[in-house]
């Protein structure tokens, strides 16, 4: 067995006539943090959801920990127990307390005793800094707290791999930091992580590898300094330009041809002041 936690070969996935993943190859080694970036609709979330088979791939193989999940006789429930997943919308169980959210799968699936499950859940809630919220219901928590519970819930199953599907996209800006700090700590402890994100600063700082996806394919991948610092592909550059410097976008970049009629001088457009400072 290699040390690749995730080994994806020739992965294809379509939704109806929409071909969202076009022959993806991807490996994630033990202890690696891989961030997947790209415009919405590029297939990055679908790719992540294929890693624990929440989406059924059409062709290709998905090996996690050496087990082929696309094998039809694979025990997918057993495999998923070692793959933690964190969702954009948290998906905490609203009818269970914070502690029960973290113990329910341990007791029902991992067959741990209630006392052991509780001990493990509490340890993980301490890790995410929520030991004082164990008896609250999710509705009482802020978005950032809910997402940290979701991380603790996944960690309580002792995963070998953690999948993050835009974990901070549904959060108020001031709550993003607390979730990212938990993820950074997790990365420093050596957790293997595959993270779909729009947080470029996080990717630059924490990721071992950054993957840029567009139109269902991996366009560029490498060290964060390379992909984010000096991308070789034009599409990567354009994406980063839009994401990192949204206020510097000039109108003809997104208005395209309409802004500059052929043969004539550029159409007179009202000057847009991104800071709204013009009196």
């Amino acid at each position: 067995m290699t040390d690749a936690v995730v080994d994806i070969r020739g992965l294809n996935k379509s939704f109806g006539s929409l071909h969202v993943l076009r022959g993806i190859d991807l490996t994630v080694s033990t202890g690696d943090v891989v961030c997947v970036i790209g415009p919405s609709g590029s297939g990055k979330s679908t790719l992540l959801r294929c890693v624990n088979l929440l989406e059924q791939p059409e062709s290709g193989t998905v090996l996690v920990g050496g087990v082929d999940l696309t094998d039809r006789d694979c025990d997918i429930d057993a495999a998923r127990r070692h793959i933690g997943m964190v969702f954009q919308q948290f998906n905490l169980f609203p009818h269970l307390t914070v502690l029960q959210n973290c113990t329910v799968a341990q007791v029902t699936v991992a067959k741990r005793s209630t006392s052991e499950a509780t001990r493990i859940a509490r340890e993980n809630l301490v890790r995410v800094g929520l030991e004082d919220k164990v008896d609250e219901y999710p509705a009482k928590l802020s978005g950032g707290q809910q997402q940290r519970v979701a991380i603790a819930r996944a960690l309580s199953m002792d995963p070998n791999l953690m999948l993050f599907d835009e974990p901070t996209s549904a959060l108020d800006p001031e709550l993003v930091g607390e979730v990212l700090s938990v993820m950074r700590q997790l990365a420093s402890e050596g957790m293997t992580m595959l993270v779909v994100t729009h947080e470029m600063a996080f990717a630059r700082e924490v990721a071992d590898r950054v993957i840029f996806m567009d139109a269902g394919a991996i366009v560029e991948e490498g060290r964060p300094a390379e992909v984010l610092g000096s991308p070789t592909e034009a599409r990567t550059r354009e994406f980063l330009h839009r994401v990192l410097e949204p206020t510097k976008l000039s109108t003809d970049e997104f208005l395209g041809d309409r802004a500059a009629p052929a043969g004539g001088p550029a159409m007179e457009l009202p000057k847009i002041d991104p800071h709204g400072l013009t009196p």
Binding site: L54, A78, L92, F93, H95, T108
Partner: peptide, 29 residues
């Protein structure tokens, strides 16, 4: 919400367990 089943299944719960522990209690509420 569909995310509830996805969260339950991604924790390794078989469909029956996810129904019993996660979906039905919320449905009855």
């Amino acid at each position: 919400p569909k995310g509830q089943v996805e969260a339950a299944r991604s924790l390794g719960m078989p469909a029956m367990v996810a129904s019993r522990k996660i979906v039905l209690p919320q449905a009855f509420r």
